[in-house]
């Protein structure tokens, strides 16, 4: 099934939402919404590896046309992916109906 729009959901460490939006806008996203959140990564893993995972997170919701979804996901992965200080995870969900989008 083909969808015209998809919602990219990106979870990053607090303070990196702007970086996410900057790369998304470069590719063609028009805007996003940022929600503050708290991560609950496995405490055992933290103890074993003796690292602390920053619990303060930001969730960035970006509604994008399906055709630029992959480009945005790749750009997010490159600039704020798991191997960067942003420690971002991003995925896309299908969106079947949209209202309220302004024509450009």
């Amino acid at each position: 099934m083909q969808f015209e729009h998809e919602m990219i959901l990106c979870i990053v460490n607090a303070g990196f939402s702007e970086a996410v939006m900057d790369v998304a806008k470069e590719i063609g996203a028009r805007g996003g919404t940022v929600i503050s959140a708290r991560g609950t990564a496995a405490k055992d893993a933290e103890r074993i590896f003796q690292i602390t995972i920053q619990p303060e997170k930001e969730i960035v919701l970006i509604l994008v046309p399906s055709k630029i979804r992959d480009d945005i996901l790749h750009a997010i992965y490159k600039s704020v992916g798991l191997n960067t200080p942003g420690q971002g995870i991003a995925f896309a969900l299908p969106v079947d109906s949209v209202v309220g989008l302004q024509e450009t």
Partner: peptide
């Protein structure tokens, strides 16, 4: 869902300061 989206769209257009965006995910 279609009725809810249509209702929301009307409110987005007519309500002062009520602009927004709505979408559904299955």
């Amino acid at each position: 869902a279609p009725q809810a989206l249509a209702g929301l769209e009307e409110k987005f257009r007519t309500l002062r300061g009520g602009k927004g965006i709505a979408y559904t995910v299955p």
